[in-house]
């Protein structure tokens, strides 16, 4: 049976993680490679590194992080943030990432998805999508870009289907409404998208407890759930989360 995945997301700014102040296990706080190794040992199924470096000159630091992660952990990992050309994508893949996540640049230039899929295969191309509730659209959700600040013309379901047809192999679906609330994932949105596309959907935004993951993996029909602060601040370990899920009959990998 295919397992439901638990994925940890790390925001990286100029080579340092921006969360993790209460992190245990004696890791070098702020070092994404050390944090990745810790989550790897705890049995995380996949990792996402999101580059939030603002200045273009300092973007190269991320490639060094990617290369060092690839030497230390032997599970798939994805890199996103600031990838707007085929050349940006090539550099990240060659440094050792399995997948790239395309968000705002894909909305501005959908051909980027097709180009990336042609070059590296759909399995390497993840659509990162931020959605905001909007009753005026058919699906009830609107795609927003630039970290949720800029609304687009796209209906969330329509954009998900379009990205799939362009060659995206997976969708990381982030609810702007739920993000940061720790009140649980947006189940309705997740179920809507996951039941209509034929590629895996990773739920993102709102996780505060292991029960939230159970909800979105079972009721929300997500294929995977993304967590960040609930593990970065040491509230839970990946092992605890997966232990809880297993107890609730969610099939997860033992590692």
């Amino acid at each position: 049976m295919l397992k439901k995945r638990v994925i940890v997301c790390l925001d990286v700014k100029e080579g340092k993680t921006t969360k993790g102040i209460k992190f245990q296990d004696n890791v070098d706080l702020g070092d994404p490679v050390a944090m990745a190794e810790t989550y790897y040992r705890q049995g995380v199924d996949e990792l996402v590194f999101y580059d939030i470096t603002a200045s273009a000159e300092k973007r190269g630091i991320m490639l060094d992080v990617v290369a060092r992660v690839a030497e230390k952990i032997f599970i798939p990992f994805c890199v996103g943030g600031g990838l707007s050309t085929a050349e940006d994508i090539r550099r990240v893949i060659n440094a050792g990432a399995e997948k790239v996540s395309l968000n705002s640049p894909a909305v501005k230039n959908p051909e980027l998805i097709r180009e990336a899929a042609r070059l590296y295969g759909s399995q390497s191309v993840v659509l990162g999508m931020d959605a905001l509730a909007d009753p005026s659209l058919p699906s009830g959700y609107r795609v927003v870009i630039n970290g949720g600040r800029t609304p687009t013309e796209w209906d969330a379901l329509e954009w998900a289907l379009r990205a799939q047809s362009l060659g995206a192999g997976e969708i990381v679906l982030n609810s702007i409404d739920a993000d940061g609330t720790k009140a649980g994932y947006e189940l309705k949105l997740t179920r809507l998208i996951s039941s209509r596309v034929s590629i895996p959907v990773v739920a993102s935004g709102g996780a505060g407890t292991p029960e939230h993951l159970r909800e979105v993996l079972q009721e929300g029909q997500a294929d995977a759930a993304l967590v960040a602060s609930m593990v970065h601040y040491g509230t839970y370990t990946v092992r605890q989360i997966k232990g809880y899920l297993r107890q609730k009959n969610v099939s997860v990998r033992e590692a």
Binding site: D45, Q123, G169, S198, P200, D223, A224, R253
Partner: peptide, 8 residues
């Protein structure tokens, strides 16, 4: 869902 993607 195809591709079969993930841990099995």
């Amino acid at each position: 869902k195809v591709p079969h993607m993930g841990w099995n």
